[in-house]
Structure formats: structure tokens, C-alpha cells
Design a binder for these strands. Structure first.
Lengths: 343, 343
DNA sequence: CATTAGCACTCGCGCGTTAAGAGTGCTAAC
DNA sequence: GTTAGCACTCTTAACGCGCGAGTGCTAATG
């Protein structure tokens, strides 16, 4: 177990390193006015902390920097919550300023988050598990083209143009839409593909000529899986960080960010609450020098989305954790009201 | 006027520099097997070309690199068209593979373009001058929320959620929509805002109670200016270029790319055909070390969009120009068919 | 006995020097 | 007009050196 003094020193070192990005030496620590020990004492403690794995040296006679284990301990035990009145106010203003589109608020949140932190923010849109189908429409544009529009009870609109094969005649199309609206109204959109296969298909066979050909079309138009969307803010903020003075690192960062599905899968696994993964704790090689902090937010009554911040392991954990908590609360609150307003 | 030999040497130097990014020396040139002169002769010619402003030295005893004037001459007089059968085939495959959404083909084109060149591609969506309103719909979601949907004859869909003030009753809303559809069907969407102000407003005053309040809503929902959209591909490709070994340059590049409106205005001015602006010929300071090549494409019968490539002044002009010509043709062809299919 | 002052020692960093290499410009010969 | 030769210039990488920051250890101190 660490002594009080060791905790103090560990904390001071990490705080200082987070701020300056330079290895911190014993003399600098002893000068801080909340540290009443001499440099020599601190050197001894630092040696111990290094043996225990909380600190590292960059070379044999350098100051110390936190190890990943050090950061881990810091995050788990040494962080006092911080008040971010101003930042939370900013968030509140932006989020609650009467919005009507889900995408909009999520994108804004991502941007504000990266703005306030100078790290890269990633938000995973909520899975729209419980939004329900409000209406399906097909609008014919010419003899052989049409656009299909699908509206959910939350005002989410999806649309897709398609060409109408000559074999399908307009009245059939209309019939189909009627059937679909009749049967699928109020069904959670997540269940649409399944419903379509089981209930609708057989029904439509009865009413329509040439059913087979239409089937594939409809399926493709309305019921393809829609991948979860990723909102990213401040991709170039990471360039501000001094650890990114190396072009090779920048390159690998950007190529990593292009793999949206990998990133999405990283975020998805996160359960409720705040989760911090530091350096090698991350499963994906490409972010083994990064820290990832995730928090979840709720849409209505149960559908989760994830907010995350990606930055160097030398991250302002204290600020970032508080901020993420704040944002996730604000988002949950705002989205609750929003969601309810559609009931 | 330049002599034959000077032209040859200028060309060889630029070709070589474009390929290697290293200053090229007299000995290297004399070794090429289409150059039958000794290094000394070439040195003399190079000195003359430098006096004329076509070449530069990086330091007093270095090889030569092209000046901007050199590139300009190269682009205007020394580029032989190149055959890009393979690349054009790739483009064809991607573009013509039956698409139905405009955005889709434009985005794909941007991506393919940057993929094939390793530069950053920027495509300005066509101004939808002539697409016409097909249908307006308002779908109410709850007592006080609704989503408005606007469909054009080309299958383009815009939507916007809004809250319905208590003062407006549903039947009024319906009436409005009827009026709008009646009066605005077939009107080019570019003219909608104007039409709304002049014709519709007065008409609606007669039919509706409480017109004033609704007016602003409708205006905001349907008739706000929609900015021209920018499609960007391969933002991180630029990192591959050796001139980007400097973090400061990368930073300034990315901050430049964030100013979408400036970039859009740069592209807009381009008239028909291919246009190459090299280094300081660009009006915006931020891209004074870049070259920008733009080509235009047509949607249907007259609406122009712009395709552009942004790269270092040391660009593969020959390839890029041919490619851009090819792509602009393919896009125009494909979009012509697409556009016609909606008539 | 924990703490601290003192000191030798270790590295990294910046700097000037040096040598190699690439390339030029000029002159003189072909 | 063309080219070979050569002195000269400048970049780059390598090397050595001294400085400063920082450490680890020892011995003195309260």
C-alpha cells in the first residue's frame, strides 16, 4: 500500500506532467508549496514509486513520467471531482437551445466536446431501438423511378430512390404501401426487417401479381440494416498535442480514424457509466498510445448511445471525466424531453 | 523563346522532380537516355533557364527545382495527354453501377478520385437550379410536433422537424400544405423562396386564421437557403506527400480544410473546362504552396458542379489533368442519363 | 531513524567542427 | 558549340564537447 506521502508525490507528478508534457524532477516537486519535503526525500520516494511500477524514466538520469499503471491509479484513486460550471453552462446552452433533430444535437455535442477539451470526440448515435414506424410513403417521380420515404414517430426520416421495374404497376405499388402502413404502423423500427419477412411477405403474395420481383426491391429499400452512425468532432485537435510532433504518428492516427467500424465496436461494448481505458488497456493496437474515455447517454427509456474522447495517455483526466459526466447527463435530460414530446 | 533543347531539359527536370521530390542535378539529366548532352552543357542551359525564371535552386550549389513559372509553362505547353484506360475503367465501374441518389455518386467520385491520385479531392455538388418541386408533405407526429418533407422530381428529399405552436390547428396546417402543393408543383426549387414571398404569402392570408405566426415557421422549414454541399475525399492522403514532413504544415492544411465556405467559393468561380492554378496563383493565402486543379461537370442541361484536386505544387499534372477530364466526362454522362430518367 | 545536504555520475541537448558527397560555375581544350 | 576538368559552395551526417537537469548514494543532522 502506498503511504500518504507517496500518494501526494504521485499526484503532483502526474498533474505536472499532464500539464507540461515534460518529465518532472525532484527539485521541481519540492518547490511546490503543498510539498514540504526536500528534493532528496522525494528522490527516494520516486525511486520506490518507480520500483512499484507507477513511474518511469525516459532515460537513466531523467525526471519521472507516469507509467500506464500510474495513470490507472491516478484515475481510480487520486482524482477529485472538479467543478466545471462554465463548461457545463456552455453545454447546456448549446444542447437545450430547442432542437428537433436528433442528429443535430449529437453532432453539436461532439463538436462542443472537442472544442472544450482539445481532444477528439466520438459519439455513437443511439440505437433507435424503440422508435416506431409512423408512416411509409412511396412517391413516384417518373414512369420508372420512385422515392420511398420512411418516417418514425421521432421525426427521423429515411429515404431511398429506386427504379421501378416495368413489371410492377403503380396500383400494385400503392397496394403494397397500404398494406405496409396498415400492418407496420407503430412497430419499432428495429423489428421491421423481421416483421417484413414473417408477416408481410405472405400477405402480399395474395394481393399482388408478380410478387417475387417486388419483394427484393422493398426489402432493399425499407429494411436494410442501418449501421450505427458515428459523429466525430475535432479530428485535427489532436495535432495540438505535443506528443504529435511526429508525422508518422499523425499518419497512423488518421488512418485509424478512417476505420469507423472498428471504432464503433470499441465504443459499443461500454456499459453504463464512465469508463477509462489507458494505453495498452485498449484492445486495438492502433490506439495503444492513446487513452479512451467513454460515457453513455440515454435516449428516452433505455436506448443507449456512447460519448467518447480520444486523446494521448497524458490526458487531462480530471477535467475530461467531469465534463463527460456533465455532457452525458445533459444529453440524457435533453433527449428525454425530446423523446417524450413525441409521445 | 526557348530552344528545343531547353524545352527538353525543362521537361526532364520537371518530370523527374515530380517523381522524386529531390532537386535534380546536371549529371542525373545527362544520364537519361533521351538526353544526348553532357552534364556541362546541361549546366549551362540550366543556368539560362534559371535566369529566365523557369527553374530555381534550393541553395547555391544544389540541383534545380521547377519554379511556379516553370510549372505553369509545363502545364501549358509540355504536357502530352496520357492514356488512363485502367483508371477510367475503374471510374466507369464505380459511377455507372446503377445509382439513384445524387449525393451517392458525387461522394463516390470524390473518394475514387483521391484514391487514384493520393491527393485530396473536393467536389462541389451541382446547384440544383432546375430540379423541380414534386411534393410537399407535413406529417404530424404528436400534438405539437411535425416533420415537413420536401421531394424534388429527381428524388432529392429534404426534411425538417419542427414544433407546432398551439395556435396553429391541424386543419390549417393541412390547408397550407394543399395550397403549397397546388401552387408550387413543378417550380424549380431555386425559385421557391421567392415564390413563397410573392405569391403564396398573400394567398394564405385569406385562408388561414392567425397567419402571421405560421408564416415564419413555414419560411424556416421549407425555404431557407440550402448551401452548396462540399464532398471531400482523401483528406489524409496529403500526408503521404513528402512535402508534408512538417507538423506545422499539416496543421495549417487541416485548419484550411475546415473553412468550407472559402473553399467552396474558390471552386465556384471556375468556368467550363480544366483550370490549373499553381501556388501563388491561388487567391487564398492558405493554399499558396498548393496547386488546385478544377474541372466542371454538368447535371442534365446546364447546372454545373466542380470537381477539384488539391495537392502540392509538385503534382502529377499530366496524370491528374487527364484523370479529371475523364471523371468529369463520366460524371456528366452518368448524370445526364440519371437526370433524363426523371423526366 | 527519518530527513536532508552534498557530491559524483549519467544522459540528453545544443553547438561547433569536420569530412563526404552532390552539384555548380567557370575556364580551357577539343 | 560542346565538353572535360577543377575549384568552389553548400548540405548533411557524424563526432566530440560542455552544460544543465536530474539521479543515486553516502554521510551528516535534528
Amino acid at each position: 500500500m502506498l503511504t500518504e506521502r507517496q500518494l501526494l508525490i504521485l499526484q503532483v507528478i502526474i498533474d505536472d506532467f499532464i500539464e507540461t508534457a515534460h518529465p518532472v524532477g525532484s527539485r521541481a516537486i519540492s518547490k511546490k508549496n503543498n510539498v514540504p519535503y526536500s528534493a532528496a526525500t522525494i528522490r527516494n520516494e520516486m525511486a520506490d514509486l518507480e520500483d512499484l511500477g507507477y513511474l518511469e524514466k525516459t532515460h537513466s538520469s531523467s525526471g519521472r513520467i507516469p507509467s500506464e499503471k500510474g495513470y490507472r491509479y491516478y484515475v481510480d484513486h487520486l482524482i477529485a471531482p472538479i467543478s466545471l460550471k462554465n463548461d457545463v453552462k456552455i453545454i447546456k446552452n448549446i444542447i437545450q437551445d430547442g432542437f428537433f433533430e436528433l442528429e443535430q444535437v449529437v453532432q453539436m455535442s461532439a463538436e462542443v466536446l472537442s472544442e472544450l477539451t482539445n481532444y477528439t470526440s466520438i459519439i455513437l448515435g443511439p440505437e433507435l431501438l424503440e422508435t416506431k414506424l409512423k408512416q411509409i410513403q412511396i412517391i413516384t417521380l417518373s414512369d420508372h423511378t420512385a422515392v420511398a420515404i420512411l418516417v418514425t414517430n421521432t421525426g427521423h426520416v429515411e429515404h431511398r430512390s429506386f427504379s421501378v421495374p416495368a413489371e410492377i404497376n403503380p396500383s400494385d405499388l400503392e397496394k403494397m404501401v397500404n398494406i405496409l402502413n396498415d400492418r407496420l404502423f407503430g412497430v419499432p423500427i428495429i423489428r421491421l426487417p423481421e416483421m417484413f419477412k414473417t408477416e408481410i411477405a405472405s400477405l402480399m403474395k395474395q394481393y399482388m401479381n408478380d410478387f417475387e420481383k417486388s419483394y427484393d426491391y422493398l426489402q432493399a429499400v425499407f429494411f436494410s440494416e442501418n449501421p450505427v452512425k458515428l459523429y466525430v468532432g475535432g479530428k485535427s485537435n489532436i495535432l495540438m498535442q505535443p506528443e504529435f510532433n511526429d508525422v508518422e504518428k499523425i499518419r497512423s492516427f488518421y488512418s485509424m480514424m478512417e476505420k469507423e467500424d472498428e471504432i464503433a465496436s470499441l465504443l459499443k461494448s461500454s456499459d453504463n457509466g464512465i469508463k477509462v481505458t489507458i494505453g495498452h488497456e485498449n484492445e486495438i493496437d492502433a490506439i495503444k498510445d492513446f487513452s479512451l474515455i467513454t460515457a453513455s447517454y440515454q435516449l428516452g427509456e433505455g436506448q443507449l448511445g456512447t460519448i467518447a474522447l480520444l486523446g494521448p495517455t497524458r490526458m487531462e483526466y480530471r477535467k475530461v471525466i467531469s465534463l463527460l459526466k456533465g455532457l452525458s447527463n445533459e444529453m440524457t435530460d435533453a433527449l428525454y424531453l425530446w423523446y417524450k414530446s413525441y409521445e
